[in-house]
Design a protein around this nucleic acid. Structure first.
Length: 478
RNA sequence: GGUCCCAUCGUCUAGUGGUUAGGACGCUGGCCUCUCACGCCGGAAACCGGGGUUCAACUCCCCGUGGGACUACCA
């Protein structure tokens, strides 16, 4: 890499940030950081009807949440701004003029209805549906006529009858024939630039050296190469990574379930886990490493390791990673990340004893797969009306169970040991007094104390619950 | 239909002409253990098919087949 690379992530604010886009952002971010280059964020909001400011705000939040910081872009103006396409309209207008004076574009007065008609006719006659260039040969008079009739033209690029080639960093040599492509619109009749037009101008003007994006843009690249050539710009290097697929191997979309970064955040997926997983999807790291921080991935990143075939999104593996990150998260930090999820589970976090909460979280964090599952794991610590499961009831029905619990309660009542010693001492006493041991000894205690037959180590549960609460819970059984 | 892309366990992948085809998720047997989880040790599980090239193909080439993307005045 001779010069400092400049890459960009260029989403359109027309919806929630999709994990596929998040992954593209991650790849660009890793590439920039790995090579000491710049990561630019550009908002492609030329579709006035679909773009919304709220989506843009969301986008920036999600990116920030993921830890993908940009060097230039919204809220971080640089030397190549503005970074919103809607604020660059004069630039596009200038460039349209440039192509007009080179006679490389022409106005098209076809209405959408006419275009649709042409399309259908072509499909019916089993020909490729593409614009046949009806307006390309319009005379000056004919154009004037249309203008006078009040028709606003779009502008189409005269696609040359040539072969266009480029070297893709991930896929190798690519080749497209101009003949297969109809004259495409570069400026819409409402004056807004079309994607392929704006993207070329911006990438060039912003000094983008590498365009890393999804495979769905592969065929667009041909059109863009044409435009680069028409402008006399040197095209950047392209790299098209594979797409994220749903279970049915089709491009991952809403009908496959959760697909937006926001949805995963609401489920209690940690950003570290999401990034790690996305970095693993359709790529790999040396020595088969799978659990890597954002920084470790960045250091090890290479486009050479990006795979070409689509990758199915595996939520189970994401959850596996998430559990690892939860487990490794310092408890204090985890407690604060858990706040919104605790509220959602119906706990007023202000009312919760922070020491108790810390202890509980520290105890159960091994079992947590997503933050949103917190409620299931802590209810028996905080709720007096904790539920007793059917399995637990069965355990409590056993004859020896009652003896154990009775003895346990008696011991607790009379004991004067410190909290840490009381439980082991009680167990020792129970073994001697009742002769019960193993499962028959511990399970009734577990069932009575927690209402369940599964859970964390009993000595730690008891330590958190304390003697009084324990006694209270034993009460119904003695 | 046209153009283009892709093809290793169910899934994500390693592999770059000679390997017992490796790892991870999931599944599963065992150990640990009051239970679950964690952890540890094992197991089942893959080179889409056919032709070439070569002493030798998962690996290179071609043809099939299969999947996917694009085919908008969306990006």
């Amino acid at each position: 890499m001779a010069d400092k690379p400049r890459v960009r992530f260029a989403p359109s604010p027309t919806g929630e940030l999709h994990v596929g886009n998040a992954r593209t952002a991650l790849f660009n971010w890793m590439f920039a950081r790995h090579h000491g280059g710049d990561f630019i964020l550009r908002i492609e909001d030329t579709d006035e009807t679909r773009s919304a400011l709220s989506y843009q705000v969301n986008l920036l939040n999600d990116l920030t949440w993921l830890g993908l910081d940009w060097d230039e872009g919204p809220q971080k103006e640089g030397a190549y701004g503005p970074y919103k396409q809607s604020e660059r309209l004069d630039i596009y207008a200038r460039h349209l003029q440039q192509l007009e004076s080179a006679d490389l574009v022409y106005p098209c007065y076809c209405t959408e209805e006419e275009l649709e008609e042409e399309r259908q006719a072509l499909i019916l006659s089993k020909r490729m549906p593409r614009y046949m260039g009806k307006c390309r040969q319009l005379t000056r008079d004919e154009r004037k006529q249309k203008e006078d009739a009040g028709r606003k033209p779009s502008f189409r690029f005269k696609v040359p009858d040539e072969t266009f080639q480029f070297a893709d960093l991930i896929r190798g040599a690519m080749k497209f024939e101009g003949t297969a492509i109809g004259d495409f619109i570069i400026v819409r009749s409402n004056g807004m630039p079309a994607y392929n037009f704006a993207v070329v101008i911006d990438d060039h003007l912003m000094g983008i050296t590498h365009v890393i994006r999804g495979e769905d843009h592969l065929s667009n690249t041909a059109l863009q190469i044409m435009l680069y050539k028409a402008f006399g710009f040197v095209p950047p290097t392209f790299a098209h990574h594979c797409l994220i697929l749903g279970k049915d191997r089709a491009k991952l979309s809403k009908r496959h379930g959760s697909v937006s970064v926001g949805e995963f955040r609401k489920q209690g997926i940690l950003p570290e886990a999401l990034m790690n997983y996305l970095g693993l999807l359709g790529s790999s790291f040396t020595e088969g490493r799978e659990v890597l921080s954002r920084e470790e991935m960045m250091a090890a990143f290479s486009l050479d390791r990006a795979s070409k075939s689509g990758a199915i999104f595996d939520e189970e593996k994401l959850h596996w990673l998430n559990a690892i990150y939860i487990r490794n998260c310092p408890t204090e930090n985890l407690v604060s990340r858990l706040q919104p999820f605790l509220e959602q589970a119906g706990y007023s976090t202000d009312a919760l004893d922070p020491v108790l909460l810390y202890g509980v979280v520290d105890l159960i964090k091994n079992d947590l797969t997503t933050l949103s599952a917190i409620g299931n794991h802590i209810s028996f610590f905080f709720d007096d009306e904790y539920e007793i499961t059917a399995e637990a009831r069965q355990i409590l029905e056993k004859e020896s169970a009652l003896r154990v619990l009775k003895t346990f309660a008696e011991y607790l009542k009379n004991s004067a040991e410190a909290v840490q010693e009381i439980y082991p001492a009680a167990i020792k006493h129970l073994k001697e007094k009742t002769g019960v041991k193993g499962k028959d000894l511990f399970m009734p205690i577990r069932a009575a104390l927690t209402g369940r037959n599964h859970g964390p180590e009993l000595d730690r549960v008891f330590a958190i619950l304390g003697k009084n609460a324990a006694l209270k819970r034993l009460n119904p059984f003695v």
